[in-house]
Design a protein around this nucleic acid. Structure first.
Lengths: 217, 217
DNA sequence: GTCTATACTACGATAGAC
DNA sequence: GTCTATCGTAGTATAGAC
């Protein structure tokens, strides 16, 4: 094994460990000492792989977002009726979040912590931001298309995106609270399937244009 | 003004300042020095009012949850058809979150950070936890009642609670990201009304038992 | 590429003067 | 009730040996 391969191995290990820790305790709550030692290195060795803590954080975040983007964009690009495409998008989002339990919390935290770094634009954050924007734009376009072609009710695409994020990312980020609420692991195969069904059936009934409904508010 | 009144004034000021800071940067991201100086005191003076940082945090959290609980529980206790009661509950939740912009983020962060303190049970957290549990139990009961009496589709009450939290708390906690997405302040009167309408109409169409819908998954 | 040693700063918390 | 001073620890980051 060459030095190069060793370096890549260390880098990957650090990213793995840091992702779990940043997800669990947030940017400010994690020390580089803990990251390094959990990865099996001394504290100073981190700076050989990452210029700073901020760089490490956004590399972790960009990697996680990239994993989801690589699955969601092709799904969104596929054809079919709007509701079928939305079903596939929900399945893909939930699969992506459920397969790696740290991801949802990392993502949701990043939404809160981004404007904490606010002072400067932070160039390190750009890959992560572009991945996020691409996914949001794709979802918004799907919803907008569904509305304009008459498949969906005339909802606000942007508000529906927020609702979708809440129904997927928040749910899998809710940790102990969520597990106490649903009464078991959020990440078991049964519960993941259950979540998909609940979200999709809410959308089928709540978003489809065919529904009559008496209304009352 | 007596010493006692001065003390109460300082205590309130500290709680206010700390709520804004904990909401913006989380427990680990806030230093007591910054809290104290923003409140107009020296760092050490905080410890006269709060035994520790943990105590301050949970006092802040319990106060915020208590504010919402005091409005939501009476709303939930009111009579009427399940869908009308749910409408009122959504209005109350959104009003409570929208009137004080720090609240939603503080609450959502607390869901993540609670299992960060995990090692010990933390007695300071109990008032906050009881308020949260009371609200969740009330919402869950309302949804369960609606299902059993046939007003709602046979959804999982627990999953629907998660979806409701995502649609309300997450939305108003989404900060810069959410504002970029909806294209303006989340807290303007227009946007708050818009959010209420979008959430309630999704529930009217998606939760009501009357809906037919062809289904497809 | 990893290590030890170190610089500098900030942290939470306490002691004791006023 | 607020202050200054201080303790002990841990934070990010750098320098330089190996």
């Amino acid at each position: 094994m060459t030095d190069e391969a060793q370096s890549a191995g260390s880098r990957e290990k650090i990213l793995e460990v840091a992702e779990a820790l940043f997800a669990r305790r947030g940017f400010a709550g994690v020390g580089l000492r803990e990251v390094a030692e959990t990865a099996g290195l001394g504290k100073s060795s981190l700076f050989h792989h990452f210029r700073s803590k901020v760089q490490l954080y956004f590399d972790v975040l960009g990697r996680a977002l990239g994993r989801i983007e690589a699955r969601l964009l092709p799904t969104l690009a596929g054809g079919g009726e709007p509701m079928a495409r939305l079903d596939r998008a929900v399945d893909t989002m939930i699969d992506s979040l459920a397969e790696q339990p740290a991801t949802a919390r990392l993502l949701l935290r990043s939404i809160f912590e981004d404007d904490d770094f606010a002072p400067d634009p932070i160039p390190e954050a750009e890959p992560a931001e572009r991945a996020l924007e691409a996914m949001i734009a794709g979802l918004e376009a799907l919803l907008r298309d569904g509305v304009t072609c008459g498949a969906f009710r005339p909802v606000s695409a942007r508000h529906m995106v927020q609702t979708l994020i809440g129904a997927t990312v928040y749910h899998f980020a809710s940790g102990d609270f969520g597990e106490q609420l649903v009464g078991g692991s959020l990440f078991s195969a049964d519960e993941v399937r259950r979540r998909k069904d609940e979200v999709k059936s809410l959308l089928h009934h709540g978003l489809a244009a065919t529904a009559p409904v008496p209304t009352g508010g």
